[in-house]
Nucleic acid binder design. Structure first.
Length: 526
RNA sequence: GGGGAGGUAGCUCAGCUGGUUAGAGCACGGGACUCAUAAUCCCUCGGUCGCGGGUUCGAGCCCCGCCCUCCCUACCA
């Protein structure tokens, strides 16, 4: 395990969409998990990217009078890459499905399917909705009214559908029902959380039909290697990115090292594609299946699923502009149970920003640095004897570290933050009880004052390390304030395994009061 | 129709295989303190655990029925 690569993916985002906090959510959570694993000293590979083929993109490009390639290039550079920068994501790779490596890899994958007889040519006929880019089943097709008079429309979204009959290639998904059920049985955490697993098992248990996986009515896609009249159906092709990005079909050595993925993070709407079709395709191609598919819930704004069409989509940069990327990352990780639906609101992020980040954590860093500055001229003194209250702090820290680490392992960043925050609360309480300002006045010659402040500084050191995966900016500022780098090295080089070891900051370390980590925002924007 | 998840303090949520007076955070009210970003610490207030039955010595957790919300039920990134 230690010499393999911890490989995590997000869905690749459809370029036509405008980035909203839903995209940001998945990506940030993956970033927190992967940064944490790096902080453990593991080899990590974090992939995200964009899905750029398909009829919808083609038509959009035509509407805008540009070539599809120019269209997607623009969207990627103007919208998607900037979003990653906005929310401070440290992905190792960014794959675009229009890249040569993906094209070559996808063709290689299809060739493998073909050679293994997992694909055959058949006829497919049905009502196709261009805007939804899907075939609509018969029971969901209705006669149009009003503007759509004379057309058939989809009951699902009201879009017009066209009767399409074409020769397609099919994937023998029906062969995999039992194999998939066996997978869910033998690898119980393959699809998480439990609710997603139940739905997937129920779906597969009802039987699987073969899947139409190519299109021949347009050409904005990857050619089927043995038949240039067909392009791969965008959904099927998009799934392949997880393999092609790490060398499938182009760099076998690299692929063997990184694959299978440890975690595919997905929204629960696309859990089925990842937990049913994707593993079946991998089995068909003779490749190992991923370890885990984790389906997270919806972000609810005012009780409704956030989405572009409901006009309650929020762009990540709106929040980041006010609260900063650290608070953004913190909020989504802390306020929501990853895997369940959860409510978000401007009021809530504002409240948590002030209560937890500014008053709780930021102020703690501030008061400790201020006292070391005031009583010791900013030079960390040598500690005196550790007494019962100090030991309690040490114990709380050790327990919190272990719990946070276990929570990340369980893909529960919210629990990790809850555990970490017990350190914040413990330190604030410890300072109030020990009242170093009082000791400074009443008993300035004892070593109690030094002991108390060293203990608090050590606590901050731990927090800087533990929070680095979640809030890299402020953690770096805190690390800097603690003057830790000269003696302990870079923040990123600190290891979770060692972080709870007490007494790492040496006496003589220069502590400076940091600028407010999370300054209060007096007039929250509407 | 079938299946999944949920309905717990004003708000957002915890409550594992049923066990004494149902918890947390925030908000509200009171007090302490002054190192700090008027921050911190302590305490109070606050719930018929959707509704109605049942099983049990005992149920928020189990069973039955009902109401409400959301999701899945194949090619919706």
């Amino acid at each position: 395990m230690s010499d393999s690569t911890f490989y995590v993916t997000t869905p690749i985002y459809y370029v036509n969409d405008a980035p909203h906090i839903g995209h940001g959510y998945t990506t940030v959570m993956g970033d927190i998990i992967t940064r944490w694993h790096r902080q453990r000293g593991e080899n990590v590979w974090y992939l995200t990217g964009t899905d750029e083929h398909g009829q919808k993109v083609l038509r959009k490009a035509e509407e805008n009078g540009v070539s599809p390639q120019d269209w997607v290039d623009k969207l990627v550079e103007d919208e998607w890459r900037p979003m990653l920068a906005t929310i401070d994501v440290a992905n190792d790779d960014f794959i675009r499905t229009t890249e040569q490596r993906h094209i070559d890899g996808s063709k290689a994958f299809w060739t493998a399917l073909y050679e293994r007889d997992a694909v055959y040519k058949g006829n497919f006929e049905g009502h196709y909705s261009v805007s939804a880019e899907e075939f609509v089943s018969e029971e969901d097709v209705a006669e149009g009214e009003g503007d759509d008079e004379g057309f058939k429309v989809s009951k699902l979204d009201g879009s017009r559908v066209e009767l399409v009959a074409e020769e397609n290639y099919f994937f023998r998904l029906s062969d995999y029902q039992q194999k998939l059920l066996d997978l869910y049985e033998s690898q119980p955490d393959f699809i998480q959380p439990e609710s997603a697993r139940n739905e997937v098992i129920s779906f597969v248990s009802r039987g699987l039909r073969d899947l139409s996986i190519s299109r021949s009515t347009f050409d904005w896609g990857i050619e089927v290697p043995w038949d240039d009249k067909h392009v791969m159906y965008v959904w099927i092709e998009a799934l392949l990115n997880y393999a092609t990005a790490v060398g499938y079909g182009t760099d076998p050595e690299r692929f063997a090292k990184v694959w299978p993925a440890d975690i595919h993070l997905v929204g629960k709407d696309i859990a089925r594609f990842h937990a049913v079709i994707w593993p079946a395709m991998l089995m068909a191609a003779g490749e190992p299946v991923p370890h885990r598919v984790f389906a997270h819930g919806w972000l609810l704004v005012g009780g409704q699923k956030m989405s572009k069409s409901k006009a309650n989509g929020i762009r990540p940069d709106e929040l980041v502009d006010t609260f900063g990327s650290d608070a953004y990352r913190y909020y989504f990780a802390r306020a929501l149970t990853f895997g369940s639906d959860g409510s978000i609101s401007w009021e809530d992020i504002n409240a948590r920003y002030h209560a937890e980040l500014a008053n709780g954590f930021g102020n703690l860093a501030s008061r400790v640095a201020a006292m070391i500055g005031k009583y010791f001229d900013g030079v960390l003194p040598a500690t005196g004897a550790v007494t019962v209250p100090e030991q309690m702090v040490i114990d709380v820290v050790a327990k919190a570290v272990a719990e946070a680490d276990a929570a990340i392992e369980a893909i529960a960043p919210h629990d990790a933050l809850n555990a970490i925050w017990r350190i914040v609360d413990e330190l604030n309480g410890y300072l109030t009880e020990q009242a170093p300002w009082k000791v400074a006045k009443d008993d300035p010659d004892s070593d109690r004052l030094a002991t108390i402040l060293v203990t608090a500084a050590e606590g901050l050191r731990v927090l800087a390390v533990l929070l680095n995966p979640v809030m890299p900016m402020s953690s770096a500022a805190l690390w800097d304030s603690l003057g830790a780098e000269p003696s302990l090295g870079a923040l990123d080089a600190q290891r979770i395994d060692d972080v709870a070891t007490w007494g790492q900051l040496p006496a003589g370390t220069t502590i400076t009061k940091p600028p407010s980590l999370f300054p209060r925002i007096e007039a929250p924007a509407e």
